[in-house]
Design a binder for these strands. Structure first.
Length: 478
RNA sequence: GCCCUCAUGGUCAAGCGGUUAAGACGUCGCCCUCUCACGGCGGAAUCUGGGGUUCGAUUCCCCAUGAGGGUACCA
């Protein structure tokens, strides 16, 4: 019988979570859920020098906002804890020592200076295995003397380590190309190379899902599994997401940061949906999908092997689709805070929201689209010229008069009543409704183009402000 | 330098030996229309190059080129 699938997401708290990190976590989550398995969160903080304050909390916030829930993690014990690597130091030491006994690792007392003397012109070196064959007595003596040491992997000679990656297929690396890397650092902390193996094994991870930066070092990790006599997990490596043709997204420069997008007015669900599409294409070619649909459709076959470039334009479009799919109520709730931030805050917010729903892709665009309402004064009369509508200054002048005449006596101020009154007055004056509407819209806003027509603008502005502006424009037109 | 990997329009991508080489974003045009949008319709645009294998290569193999990753007491 198949073992229960267990995947994990193992971010290191060294900065913001960009779209690429998010996607890795998302795929691990989707794969686990699709297979009815468990998803584990592990914090990889063995490099204390690169730690960034608050980064760990950001991981929890992001996962929660993204709708990616884990079964086990630092705050959800599943019996395999602790789930924070810095709290597992004792475990790594124990296993490192055990690996030495098993012949898969050895103590190394080489100093930094000696290591640097090995550097080639390029500044890199391959460890020369200086301490690989120290006698047991010597090691014991030097340990007893308190000499600083690290524990290194003892890579076997003359073997080719291969595995079958779920997306890339067969990967082989010859042991000559693998150096005896450090497993346990002199500060007692493990390197990623060692911690990921020990933890993935101890936590029962069946499928390791991570970025391609580990594709070619996985054979090295497999040698450790072998030395321990542990069963190797399945691997699924994911191609990188780039910011352009040659640069990967990097958290160091705050690229494509999840929380930044949300702050700009993107919906978390839309961002997650978009991210899922970078490097994966569902069998049915669906693009807009709920999390449940993604779980249902997720399959390894659809994962691509080549890198992809993050394209905000497409994410904007998707976000717009989410916005348009909302009910009027839902959209109002989401948009209201942004309207409140705009200069149009004092006008009819419900009407503004109604106008914005099909006109923005990202909520943060709302202020930019509505601020104009606040600035009304003398404007260029050239705006009244509209050849196709046969509107010029003379026509506009009459039209504005007509609209004032229609609106002044109006008791109720609704879309229907305004429309009806203006249309009736236009007919009475022998003008086309469109001519009056067009002129009225300009007269109300002083803008060449507005998000919505004359009626909508009148509703947004309200009775008093609308009439005030129409009279002002009437004066302007002479 | 050495090792691993990748290569279809501007972008995401389908394709898995024989197709008019899907679809989406973006872009352009038209329709709708009081402007802007929404919506509808339509257009332009892709197999990195060279060798093989094959009756036939976008598809399989090799090389080149380009790009990414690794080669750390970073992950």
């Amino acid at each position: 019988m198949d073992k229960t699938v267990r995947t994990r997401f193992a971010p290191s708290p060294t900065g913001f979570m960009h779209i690429g990190n998010l996607r890795t976590g998302l795929y691990a989550y989707l794969f686990a859920r699709h297979n009815g398995g468990k998803f584990i969160l592990r914090i990889e903080d063995t490099d204390r020098e690169r730690m960034v304050d608050g980064a760990e909390q950001m991981v929890y916030r992001t996962l929660a906002a993204a709708g990616i829930d884990y079964d086990e993690g630092p705050d959800r014990d599943g019996g395999c804890g602790p789930y924070i690597q810095s709290e597992r130091a004792g475990i790594y030491r124990e296993y490192a020592e055990k690996l030495v006994e098993l012949g898969g690792a050895y103590y190394c007392f080489c100093t930094k200076e000696r290591l640097e003397s090995l550097n080639s012109a390029g500044g890199t070196h391959t460890y020369d295995r200086h301490c690989r064959d120290l006698s047991a007595e010597e090691v014991k003596a030097r340990l007893a003397a308190g000499e600083p040491y690290v524990i290194r992997q003892k890579v076997p000679d003359g073997v080719v380590s291969s595995y079958r990656d779920m997306v890339f297929g067969e990967i082989s690396v010859s042991s000559e190309d693998i150096e005896d890397g450090v497993l346990l650092k002199s500060d007692g902390m493990p390197t990623y190379n060692f911690a990921n193996v020990v933890d993935d094994h101890l936590m029962g991870i069946t499928h390791v899902i991570r970025g391609t930066e580990y594709l070619s070092s996985t054979p090295k990790y497999n040698l450790i599994y072998d030395a321990f006599g542990w069963e190797r997990p399945q691997y699924m490596h994911l191609p990188p997401i780039m910011k352009d043709a040659t640069r990967k997204l990097s958290k160091r420069y705050g690229d494509a940061n999840f929380e930044d997008f949300v702050a700009k007015g993107y919906l978390p669900a839309a961002v997650v949906n978009y991210v899922a599409l970078l490097g994966w294409c569902p069998k049915n070619n669906a693009e807009k999908m709920t999390m449940d649909e993604m779980i249902e459709l997720f399959d390894v076959d659809g994962i691509s092997v080549s890198s992809s470039i993050f394209d905000e334009a497409k994410m904007r479009w998707l976000n717009g689709e989410y916005l348009k799919a909302m009910t009027e109520e839902e959209f109002f709730a989401a948009a209201e805070p942004w309207i409140a931030k705009s200069k149009a805050a004092r006008f009819d917010r419900r009407e503004i929201a109604r106008l914005m729903q099909t006109r923005v892709d990202v909520l943060g665009e709302i202020p930019g689209k509505m601020d104009f309402l606040d600035e009304f004064g003398a404007y260029d009369l050239g705006m009244y010229e509209h050849k196709k509508m046969k509107v010029d200054l003379e026509v506009a002048k009459r039209a504005v008069k007509v609209s004032i005449g229609a609106l002044e006596p109006l008791a109720t101020w609704t879309e229907e009543s305004i429309k009806e009154a203006v249309a009736a007055s236009a007919e009475e004056a022998g003008m086309k409704a469109g001519q009056v509407m067009f002129s009225m819209r300009v007269a109300l806003t002083g803008q060449p183009s507005t998000p919505g027509g004359a009626i909508e603008m009148a509703v947004v502005l309200g009775r008093e402000e609308s009439l005030r502006r129409l009279r002002f424009s009437e004066g302007l037109l002479g």
